[in-house]
Design a binder for these strands. Structure first.
Lengths: 108, 108
DNA sequence: CTCGTAGTACGATGATTGACGTACAAGCCG
DNA sequence: CGGCTTGTACGTCAATCATCGTACTACGAG
């Protein structure tokens, strides 16, 4: 039906538990870290999660519905962006501490 | 067998995903907020979660095994303490931002 | 010793979730 | 147009999770 427009929760509707739950999955955490490290933009295909496309779609959807990322179509590709502004405004310091902690975790 | 000694993960074994997962549940988040607001000590019975004892035990166990809280027996009661030092050392700022965000969330 | 309180252990159960394959839609390119 | 790439929708399956009830242990008070 050619929607091509993706629904995102309003900033005021972002729920802390949903964000934490979205971040609790290692795969989604990796996506967030990737976006945080790359200026917040990346196509779905640029982040190799090692899972099937369906599963990837599923995880991106969870992140989007939790209000963690924004997704925009650009041709056939879909660009994912971190909603850093909204997250920082709602939960100051949360994103940074999680990303920092995740980066350290990888090193260990 | 009178174990009466509870096993806690070592500080180095605390996993970010486990902590996030533990914090993602509203009930456990409430426990953490309560402990954070009360100097980090409280018996299981002091925090009314509105669920059965079994469920309460389950949630406390998840928190303990994730390395979020410490549990010590004092007579028949069990005292829960936040592992603030360990968490702050491993994931600087994480606990504060989550607790702050949760407190704000309740107000909304 | 007996009882009450505080919490554990052990299933059981229903809901949610993660992962997948297949079939399909939308946009680019030859 | 026809094929390729990119991602979605849908149904399925297994695993995990939150919740509970019941039976039990440990401790303190009387």
């Amino acid at each position: 039906m050619s929607t091509r427009v993706l629904q995102h929760p309003d900033a005021a509707e972002i729920r802390l538990e949903a964000v934490l739950h979205a971040l609790a999955d290692p795969m989604r955490l990796e996506v967030v870290c990737f976006l945080a490290a790359h200026g917040g933009e990346a196509g779905c295909a640029e982040i190799d999660l090692g899972v099937s496309k369906s599963t990837g779609t599923h995880h991106y959807r969870v992140l989007r519905e939790a209000g963690v990322i924004t997704q925009v179509y650009r041709g056939t590709a879909k660009i994912n962006s971190l909603r850093r502004d909204d997250l920082d405004a709602l939960f100051p310091g949360l994103l940074d501490s999680v990303v920092t902690a995740a980066a350290r975790r990888v090193r260990v």
